[in-house]
Design a protein around this nucleic acid. Structure first.
Ligand code: SF4
Ligand code: SF4
Lengths: 137, 137
DNA sequence: TATAAATACTACTTAAAGGTAGAATTAATT
DNA sequence: AATTAATTCTACCTTTAAGTAGTATTTATA
């Protein structure tokens, strides 16, 4: 019952970048050191973030990463979507997955509310919202 | 962001057993067929449920499984605990895991409420509560 | 033009979850 | 006592997530 490492790392990376978006570019070496994320794994994640259009990369010496969009326009749910970690309406708590209104599982009714709150948390939190709140890692 | 297969299966198995606790014993073959759970995986799970004291097994011909406790006294959270899938108070949404009140992560504040609802759902749902609600698988 | 420092690509390895196979054990029935 | 049908044990296989290695590519600067 938790997000994948990739999603967790990506949120932390982007939250940190949002926190430091005054500095022109942030590079992978610095991000990995600051955030205690394995360098090679971080670059893999960054490449996915670039491909998905959330950030742009500048290659070559003095290169790095910066945002493509405004941080107020990037929601945490957008990040989760990249790593197939979104909470969808049809997300199933007991793994059956094809139930309808007539035939629902033992926990269906209890699941509705927390599922909705999770969705809300991810869909309504922008990077601007969560940047600068608390610690940096 | 979902329970492990083992937890999901275990909840479905026990909810079904609670639903059919009038029948003396339920055996693995029948449970596997009815619930569409791989037989060998199901027996592995059942053995863990026996060891943890939630159900008792009768071995040999005409054997099977039945509850050790009342279904009103078995909470879904008890099942999750067996498979290390509980939602703990200190459960971390961004995977850092050692933050305190002073230094908290970007999503800490937003996480409190849904986490609490998840805990509530699992801690306050007994097998009696969820049995007989909806479909059988 | 050579060098250095950065991202991107391809491929591999490791660890954990999910699942399977087969034999051993148990106990009721014939 | 033999058979049958059940659980349990040990060991293995498969798939996916997580992480690593090495090379290629790009670009600023001396
Ligand atoms: S009713 Fe339960 S098992 Fe069925 S799709 Fe909904 S959450 Fe999943
Ligand atoms: S503050 Fe955030 S990152 Fe830190 S332990 Fe709590 S949930 Fe995890």
């Amino acid at each position: 019952m938790q997000l994948s490492n990739s999603s967790q790392y990506a949120i932390r990376i982007l939250a940190y970048m949002a926190d430091n978006k005054d500095s022109k570019l942030l590079n992978a070496t610095e991000l990995a050191k600051t955030l205690y994320i394995p360098y090679k794994f971080l670059t893999k994640i960054m490449t996915e973030l670039v491909k998905s259009g959330l950030v742009v990369s500048i290659r070559g010496r003095d290169g790095g990463y910066k945002f493509e969009k405004k941080t107020s326009e990037i929601m945490v749910s957008d990040i989760l979507a990249i790593f197939n970690d979104s909470i969808k309406n049809e997300q199933c708590v007991l793994g059956i997955g094809f139930c309808n209104g007539l035939c629902k599982c033992a926990l269906h009714d209890q699941w509705v509310e927390p599922k909705h709150l999770l969705q809300k948390m991810f869909q309504e939190s922008s990077l601007e919202d969560i940047a600068g709140k608390g610690c940096k890692i």
